[in-house]
Structures are given as C-alpha cells and as structure tokens.
Design a protein around this nucleic acid. Structure first.
Lengths: 231, 231
DNA sequence: CGCGGCTTTGATGTTCATCAAGTAAAGTGG
DNA sequence: CCACTTTACTTGATGAACATCAAAGCCGCG
C-alpha cells in the first residue's frame, strides 16, 4: 500500500450526490480505490440472469434494459434505464444470483463497486443504509406501478402510454428518436411486434403522431393522453 | 415515566425472529412500549391508498390483499399476504403516502409500530437496517417476479398458475378452501370474473380439479403444471 | 453484395371481454 | 328467524381485440 498513486475523482461524481450523500471521507476513499469503470458496446450483456452478484453497478453513460429471457428470441423487459435512473439495487441484498439480465441498448459505461465493501459501509453507517433503503423503495415502487399501469390498458392504451413515457419522462420533447426497437417495446408492454407497428401506423393515419424510422413526433398530445387514459 | 407498568411480550413474537433479530434490548423495549395491536374484521380497510404513512405494519393473524382501486367496483390486486408474509415495507421509506390499499380478506390482527421509531433505530443500528434492506429486496423481487410470470401466460395458464400457487405455496395440500373470491382472482391476474369461472369449469370438466363452492381439489397436478408452463 | 435482423402490411382464426339472464349464497333489518 | 336485498357465482351467445402466419421491402453490417 504505497501512498499517493490514486487519482480518485469520485467526489465530483453525480452518483455521489445521488447515493453517497451521507458517507464518510474514508468510506468514499475506499470506494474510489477499488471501483472499476467498464465500457459495454451496444448490444452486449452487462449482467446475465443467473450469474453470481458480486458488484454494485451504476450506469454512468448510455442506456440499458432489464430483462428476463423466455426463449432464444423472446424476452420480457422489466424497464429501460438511463444514468441516474439505473443503479443495480434490486435483488442484490437478498439474492446470491441475478434474477434478470442487464443489457446495453446503447454504448454504455458502468461503474462497478465491490458489493462487500458496500455492505460493510452499510453496517457502519446508518444514514447511508437508510439512503439505500429509500432508493430501493423508490425503484421497486416505480417498477410495480408501471406494471400496473401497463397491464390495465388495452394495446392502443399501452402504446399511447409508452409514447408519452418517452416524450414526457425521458426526452421532454414532442420529437424524439426511439432508442429501442419495435420488438423491445413489444417486450416491455407484453404484446406482439406486429401489433406495435400496426398501432403506430394507426396513430400515424389518424394524425396523432408522425413516424420516420426511429424518429417520432407527437402531433396531438391531448388525443394521445385520452387514448392512454381510456384504453 | 413511572417504572414497571409494561407487560412487554415482544421477545417471543415471531416478528422479532423474522425482522428484529439484530436489535438491542433497549430498542426492542422502545418498540414494545409503543406498539399497538389492532383488530380488523373481514372486508375492512387497514390502510387506504393516499393516506399518510405513519406506522410500520405487521400482519399477526389473518389474510390481506394489497390493491389499487381503479373504479368504484374494480381494482387491481398486487398480492395476497399471510402473516410472516406481509410486513408493510414497500413505499414506507420512500413515500409520504400509501401507493395502494391494504384490505383484510379474513379477520386480521395488525401490529403497528411508529415509523419514526423504526427510522431512528435504523439510523443507529446498521445490522438491523441491512435486515430491512434484505427483506424489502425479497418482497419487491417476489412481486415483480410474480407479475412477470402472470403476464406471460394466457388465461388458462394464469388460472393453472394461481391454483398451483394456493396448493403448493400457501396450503401445501391438494385440497384447500379458496380464501378469495373469483373476482379477486380475476383482479390478481388481470382477467374477467366470468373467465375465471369459465376456466374453473373447463378444468372441472377435464377432470383436472373438482370444485365445491370455495373448496378446490387438484386431481391432476401434472396436467395443471403442463398448462401453467405452456399457457 | 448478400445475409440476417428489423419493419411493414394483409389475411385469418383464436382468444378473450362484454352483455344478458338466471341460480345460489350471504348479509340485513324487522 | 325469516323475508328481503344484495353480492357472488354460473352459463351461453356474440362480437371485438388480439395473436399468428405469410410475404415482401428495408437497412446495416461483414
């Protein structure tokens, strides 16, 4: 352990303000000294369903999906996640193995911290652990709530819900590039790819949206909200 | 604060071994002195969606459902829960208000502990907080997993899944009294009451189950598993 | 340039919700 | 405790919503 070779930059990391607000300098230093940043190209698997959980993951840049594989070419998507939005926290305190996979949809960078280190800090530092608790509670509430919202809607309502989700929650803009395929949308809201496309086309014909490949513009937000609410 | 009027019996409570394994005597005493046990007759609301979260609840006896109301006579059920199974832990560390209601399906007894007390102990006692974390992780994993299992099945598969759930997970017996109505099953697995009944009848005609009001016997477990897996 | 995956549209049949109507069971008040 | 009311259960008929199958164009990538 020879002195000052660490160029630890965690103090300015957005994850710190998000997650490690109430942490001792010593603890943060331990994290910084052992953390690893890994780059995952689009399409690669970050964690695989069934693998042993060893690290605490945080998405620094990119876009990922949390998914369960059903067959070779069919999955169920639990949620999409952006930085600040995805911190691997579900399962990691209760399970030895991952319950689902995390896959990079766009090029992504993951910051990875040894889970035992996190657990040790949690044992010592009540404030930090309560922050963890709070964060986990938010994450699972959000997932459960989205599941309920989706499952009570018919297909048109689901598509409207997803379009509003991207437009309002993610991009805050009426025009946006869909970051996911039609198939992935289908796997998120439990329907077939064909019907995702079909309803996109219907909405286009009805003048509610315009479509150009991955680029979507919402022309009639009110109508879309109505379909989402009634569907 | 006059001396020894407390007849605290928490030390033998099953909740202690489940949840408060790693807790100081002083902390347990605080809990015991302030806890309240309340009886809720069948059908009554224990906590109401939108109400302020003030207490940490634990189901001592009975059966409850966690549900979200959609209209006057339509709900979505998140899960059923028995003692040892239900500890109100979702949302309570992240939210000020309940995201869903808890309703007694059978006569139930709830042990209620001031949430601020729990939070204070959590700040002091890292082991206890990690136990909380673990428990919450299990609970939300379980709910999310069940949602995924249900939503990927067709109606026959869902009914088979639910019947196996009661038979295997809850009663550990081929014969059992359904503790819930057909409507409640429908609200758990997102289908209509009529179709729950219809598929029950189909299974009966096919010799897979026998039905006598609320009493159900599973005659052909293998077939039911096959339907659950393939549906 | 060709292969495989993604997208699109149409035709077809199955699955499922809705409507209707009746029976059984379970509360409720006199 | 019994008539009455309400809620739960059941079955059938019908049409709408949805999945499946098929076929073709498109795009990116090796």
């Amino acid at each position: 352990m020879n002195g000052e070779i660490n160029t630890c930059d965690c103090k300015g990391c957005e994850l710190k303000s998000l997650f490690f607000e109430n942490i001792e300098d010593k603890e943060l230093k331990d994290i910084c000294n052992t953390k690893k940043e890994v780059f995952y190209p689009k399409g690669t698997i970050i964690t695989n369903e069934g693998d042993e959980i060893k690290d605490f993951h945080y998405l620094k840049t990119g876009l990922v999906k949390l998914a369960k594989k059903l067959t070779e070419n069919k999955s169920q998507i639990i949620k999409f996640a952006r930085p600040l939005d995805f911190v691997s926290i579900l399962s990691i305190f209760s399970d030895k193995y991952y319950q689902y996979s995390v896959i990079a949809i766009e090029d992504s960078t993951i910051c990875s911290i040894d889970l035992n280190l996190i657990k040790n800090i949690a044992l010592q530092n009540g404030k930090f652990t309560l922050d963890l608790l709070k964060r986990m509670s938010q994450t699972s509430d959000d997932i459960i709530n989205t599941f309920l919202e989706i499952r009570r809607r018919n297909l048109r309502g689901r598509i409207a819900y997803v379009l509003l989700y991207f437009s309002s929650d993610i991009y805050n803009n009426n025009v946006f590039d869909l970051p996911v395929s039609r198939k992935e949308i289908a796997e998120l809201i439990e329907m077939t790819t064909e019907n995702v496309i079909r309803i996109f086309s219907e909405f286009r014909k009805d003048g509610i949206i315009s479509i150009n490949g991955k680029t979507i513009e919402i022309l009639n937000t009110e109508m879309l909200k109505k379909i989402s609410d009634l569907g």
